[in-house]
Amino acid sequence: MLAYIIRRILASIPVMIVVALFVFLLLRLTPGDPAAIIAGDMATPAQLEQIRQNLGLNEPLVTQFITWSGQLLSGDFGRSLISKTPVLTLIHQRLEPTLSLAIVTMLFTLLLSIPMGVVAAWRHGTLTDSAIMAISVLGFSIPVFVTGYILIQIFAIDMRVFPIQGFRSIFDGFWPFFERIVLPALTLATIYIALIARMTRAAMLDVLGEDYIRTARAKGLSERIVLFRHALRNAAVPILTVVGTGFALMISGVVVTESVFNLPGLGRLTVDAILARDYPVIQALILLTSGIYVVINLLIDISYAFMDPRIRY
């Protein structure tokens, strides 16, 4: 088991190196002067030269990459062009809303999507199945911002149940926090629910065709036990895999949701950075989110070992 975990951790290192390489090359291989891109449109020639020095743009690419990676590892992600604050400080300031949104979204998703998928698979071919799948396709197809505006229109403008926009920290009390986070989280959760419900259904259908499910039924076990103890546990690995890979989907969702609902999180930071062409910030955000993606998928890989004894031994 320990060997498995170590193997997984080692396997994720090259992925991070590849990510770093992509981000590095993106700036260097783009037509035009990287220093000019970094400095923005208003830079003076002296500033450009200063940036060239800092980035080591006159060095060979390999040297540049090693220096740059070294800076990243020591926690130096550069400074924002606009506010001149270190990028990490900016990110730190914006972390809480995004983290809150992600966690509440995840809760909504798991509470809804897995039962939906299980029931659809169990009732395969019936109206219930079709209805759940229709909802899922719908959730999968309607863009996040459209869902967002529809929810705002219904719950905030017409019914006035929730505020239209904004964010309050959970430390200011649960209800102020919850009434503002519920619509964004629902918005963001739709795609995720759709995705995981689909996968749960597909994985359950696969498992329900297995011989050991027939054995379980031949033992006279109740359908509830057959479904949850025997089928869902075996379907867990593919479902978890999608939870992990779907995280990439969630990132793009976060960016949009935060700008629709005006949440001061990392998504807004991203949008502001795009509009200002603040490349160091964009670069750091890519590295950060990719890093989180890799870590989440690593944790999921490790959790397989707890789900499936065949991996454990």
């Binding site: 390489l21 991203t270 955000l285 990719s290």
Partner: peptide
Amino acid sequence: DGLMAIPAILLAIA
């Protein structure tokens, strides 16, 4: 794997 780890939107934005 590396390419998939970068969220599509962010890569496109960059």
